[in-house]
């Protein structure tokens, strides 16, 4: 904006006209996006309002304006499971952070090999990777459980973490492969010619360039692990080991739907870390390649 200021009147007039036009366009954009955001967020707003209502009013009084406001749901929910909810938060945090490290480490190594290195049957490897995403987890979960239970690892976090360190989240491998493939090959070819081996090239050239993919992997691993229900449910039997979703599940009675208010309240509370994380992580995403020094 300041650079556009010149001493020439005509130029200034032109600039302000452009700015005004852009301002008007932005306003329209904001208006459109704003309406859209409201539409998208209505359910969430309703959930927030409901969490402030007494249990019996949630299903019977549908409107957004509560006739009675109470924080009981938060208080009751926090202590509903014999121990403060912080226990489940810490458990979830441990599993989530471990999964992120695991995925970043194992998937980036695998993806680089699959996307850039020449070796026999590379296509077959890629196909196997994709294939393992295609079979629904419900038929895999029992053989996997038998395996981990034979190792006596049930009711520990190992069954949730070991797979992440062994590149089994094919989604991310494939994501990274696609990202690496958008990087012009000349860049790492240059490094090769300079005498860097595959490991140096990976570490100094490719990894910095695939930052958006790494950030995306981090975001998704965080969110999916934080929200995962089925796998922790099966492996973690002792209540003090529960992650947040397993704890939330044991609040509601699927037969009678009692405890809805508590469920909403605690769902919202458990959404907070994810939201904060996303808000921070997406800034990394925006910075993207511009700051990673692509010359």
């Amino acid at each position: 904006m300041t650079t556009a200021t010149t001493s020439l009147d005509s130029a200034r007039a032109r600039t302000t006209a452009v700015l005004r036009r852009r301002g008007r366009r932005d306003l329209l954009k904001h208006l459109g996006l704003g309406v859209f955001v409201l539409l998208m967020l209505y359910p969430l707003i309703w959930m927030i309002v409901s969490s402030l209502k007494p249990d019996h009013l949630i299903l019977t009084e549908p409107g957004l304006i509560p006739s009675e406001v109470t924080f009981d749901n938060f208080v009751a929910g926090w202590n509903a499971l014999n121990r403060p909810f912080t226990v489940f938060f810490l458990n979830s945090l441990l599993v989530t952070v471990g999964s992120i490290i695991g995925n970043l480490f194992s998937c980036s190594l695998t993806a680089y090999a699959l996307a850039r290195l020449e070796f026999r049957m590379r296509g077959v490897y890629l196909a196997i990777t994709l294939l393992s995403v295609m079979l629904p987890m419900h038929v895999l979960v029992i053989p996997q459980y038998i395996f981990f239970s034979q190792l006596d690892l049930v009711n520990t976090y190992y069954p949730l973490l070991i797979p992440k360190f062994l590149a089994t989240d094919a989604f991310f491998i494939y994501l990274m492969v696609q990202f690496i493939r958008t990087i012009p090959r000349d860049l790492d070819r240059a490094a090769w010619i300079d005498g860097s081996g595959p490991f140096r090239t990976f570490w100094y050239v490719v990894l910095p360039l695939m930052r958006p993919a790494l950030v995306t992997t981090t975001i998704f691993t965080f969110i999916w692990t934080w929200n995962d229900f089925f796998v922790p449910l099966i492996y973690l039997t002792s209540p003090k080991m529960f992650t947040v979703p397993v704890a939330l599940n044991s609040m509601v009675d699927s037969e009678t739907q009692g405890g809805v208010g508590m469920l909403f309240a605690m769902s919202l509370v458990s959404l907070l870390p994810v939201l904060i994380f996303f808000a921070i992580a997406q800034k990394q995403l925006i910075r993207g390649i511009a700051t990673t020094g692509l010359k």
Partner: peptide
């Protein structure tokens, strides 16, 4: 090198 990268996989 590829097979070293692919050990976890």
């Amino acid at each position: 090198a590829a097979h070293v990268f692919l050990i976890p996989w």
